[in-house]
């Protein structure tokens, strides 16, 4: 029977969590997700998470913002309506710099945040599965996804052997998702 079921193993300590993950990986079990109350040092490496591409997005968006701002100011003052402000040249590069800089930062920051939210599937009204409400408090959770129930005994054993305090079988229903 195919369904999205999960088996979760709960830990109370981050160092033990990392050790457990390594052992589980050695046994060849694929980890679906790890839930922690704070970013655990070394978790990225042990889960072999790829470095985020957000910085690149930020750079590109910032560059667009800066170029747009500089070009716009130049266009306004050289083509659209050139006005003599205190004898400054129409194409006055030094005075264009502040706005150009601010727009660069603004575009970069907004793109980073929007990119982060979209990529992570977060936002007002987003529905993500919360396996255990204690993971935002002091508990660390390893989540293994199983596609058919025959694997569950094996995984239960493995999780218990690596030191999980509680091992549970979770079938997410509507009430488990939180906005």
């Amino acid at each position: 029977m195919k369904s999205n079921n999960y088996i979760t193993g709960l830990f109370w300590d981050d160092t033990e969590l990392i050790k457990a993950i390594k052992e589980i990986q050695d046994k060849g079990i694929a980890i679906f997700d790890v839930r922690t109350p704070f970013p655990v040092h070394g978790l990225d490496d042990v889960l072999k998470l790829k470095r985020s591409r957000l910085p690149r997005l930020g750079f590109v968006a910032g560059a667009i913002g800066g170029i747009l701002a500089f070009w716009f100011q130049s266009w306004v003052f050289t083509t659209s309506w050139p006005l003599n402000f205190g004898g400054k040249p129409f194409f006055s590069v030094p005075s264009f710099i502040p706005v150009t800089f601010e727009m660069t930062v603004l575009f970069a920051a907004i793109s980073l945040v929007v990119g982060f939210l979209i990529k992570s599937g977060l936002g007002p009204g987003a529905e993500n599965i919360i396996f255990d409400e204690r993971t935002t408090d002091d508990a660390f959770l390893i989540v293994v996804k199983i596609t058919d129930n025959s694997q569950s005994d094996n995984i239960f054993e493995v999780l218990t052997s690596v030191g999980a305090s509680e091992v549970k079988h979770v079938e997410p229903t509507k009430t488990d998702t939180h906005a």
């Binding site: 205190g86 004898g87 400054k88 030094p94 005075s95 710099i97």
Partner: peptide, 12 residues
């Protein structure tokens, strides 16, 4: 550098 230059350029 730009602080010094911009302010002197601006006040002229």
């Amino acid at each position: 550098w730009i602080s010094q230059y911009l302010l002197i350029w601006y006040a002229n």
